[in-house]
Simulated scan of single mutants.
Amino acid sequence: MSAVIQGVAGMGFALLCAPFLIQVFGPTEGVKQVVLLSLVLNAVYFGREVKGARLKDALSLLLPSLLVAPLLASWFRKFSPDVLLVIAGTITIISAILLAFGVRTTQLEGRAGALGAGVMSAAMNVAGGLSGPAVAMYAVSARWPVTSIRPTLQLFGIGVNTVTLLSLGSPNMQHLPWIGLMLGVVGGFILAPKISSERIRPLILSLAFIGGGWIVLKGLW
């Protein structure tokens, strides 16, 4: 389902599936599963939209992420699983709220904005498998053309998810998530021309908010 929504709306895969995979596999393994699946999905959709990518902007976001992700991965290993659940769930909830209200700020523009968005994206990816919200808000605040946002963020996702996996380690291979991903990609290609992304966006954010809340409660109790 998450891959279908990503194909239709251009966003939402990790935001939607991260709470549930973390719930099933635990905070450490769940994040690894999300990051690997996201990496594959980034590559699939980037191959379809490569012409609109802004290489320079992707690199400006990616460089700070590449430097910070290994340090953060080492630091997060010191936390207990329950603490990581609360961190991942809280990040999911905040991301859903900010995207729902279309948060936009001039502080996210320029080189300083790219640096901040790249670092925040790396932190959110290591903790909760969510590299997208921070850089999506940067792209909107920087007024990128709509046709460039999706391919550029897919390119960024390939880089940040790769370095995150190298930092966290490889996940245990599970058949069901991969089967779901493949079916979702096919479904996304079929449904994308038929469904408006604006119709499905509220569903993405609502489910992400609920899932994030559930993970926080699980970590607390």
Rank of each mutant, 00 (worst) to 15 (best):
F156N: 08
T106S: 15
P145N: 13
V83S: 12
I94N: 02
S131F: 07
L108K: 01
N42F: 13
G26S: 09
M11T: 08
S74K: 15
A122G: 08
L203D: 03
A58Q: 08
G213I: 10
S141R: 02
E49L: 12
I179H: 00
A58I: 00
G116A: 12
G118L: 06
G184N: 01
K78V: 13
V163P: 03
F189M: 12
V68F: 14
G213Y: 07
A114L: 10
R199W: 12
I87M: 12
G188S: 08
F156C: 05
G10Q: 02
G219W: 00
N125P: 04
S95E: 03
L220A: 10
G12C: 09
L16G: 00
Q174H: 15
S196F: 08
R54Q: 14
A88F: 08
L98G: 05
A122W: 03
V126N: 05
L130F: 00
L176K: 00
V160H: 01
H175G: 13
W75P: 01
T90W: 06
Y138C: 06
R48A: 14
L71H: 10
L207Y: 04
A192Q: 15
E49Q: 11
S80Q: 14
A112W: 12
A127M: 08
G10L: 00
E109R: 15
F209N: 02
I158K: 06
S65L: 05
